[in-house]
């Protein structure tokens, strides 16, 4: 690419920036806040319930997360989550219900290509990276902690 062409591209990208409508940042952030906040409030309700029957905090956490994941899957199946996300944005995406939605949405979509190579293979198309990088970064930080505290062996 010569310089004139590069300049033209830079200039055009500036034009595009000016022509593109800005997102309604305040409204979007407020909607995300409310949506995410409400989902976490439901989570708190479940947590308080599970706390009664579960012996430890880690187990209560695990069961609460799993229950919210189940809720997210059902809401996706009923076609409600798509609607919620269009309005709540990241408020619907960031809670674990949103993580569950990525798995269910992919499973529903790719079922048409069969249960093995469609649904089975592509279920984690978006959730996969979340697990991969969650585990990789968790592994590295845990390893560091173990080495520094001498508890590795």
């Amino acid at each position: 690419m010569d310089k004139a062409q590069k300049d033209q591209h830079t200039r055009y990208q500036q034009m595009v920036k000016e022509a593109t409508p800005q997102p309604n940042r305040w409204k979007n952030a407020a909607m995300a806040f409310i949506t995410g906040g409400l989902i976490c409030t439901i989570g708190q309700l479940l947590y308080n319930l599970f706390e009664i029957i579960e012996p430890s905090r880690l187990e209560t956490t695990a069961v609460t997360q799993a229950a919210m994941i189940a809720l997210g899957a059902v809401a996706t199946g009923l076609g409600f989550y798509d609607w919620l996300a269009e309005r709540g944005g990241m408020g619907a995406a960031v809670p674990v219900t949103g993580f569950s939605n990525t798995i269910t949405a992919a499973a529903m979509e790719f079922k048409r290509e069969g249960y093995i190579l469609g649904m089975g293979a592509k279920m984690f198309v978006i959730a996969g990276p979340v697990l991969v990088y969650g585990i990789l970064s968790g592994f590295v930080i845990s390893l560091l902690r173990a080495v520094l505290s001498g508890s590795l062996f």
Binding site: T20, P21, Q22, P23, N28, T76, G79, Y81, D82, L84, A85, E86, R87, G88, G89, M90, A92, A93, G98, N101, T102, T104, A105, A106, M108, E109, F110, V125, I126
Partner: peptide, 17 residues
């Protein structure tokens, strides 16, 4: 949508453009 973007029921908020 499924070929160029995302599964239909995925939690994506569309941008104005």
């Amino acid at each position: 949508e499924r070929q160029f973007r995302y599964p239909i029921e995925l939690n994506v908020q569309h941008k104005k453009s």
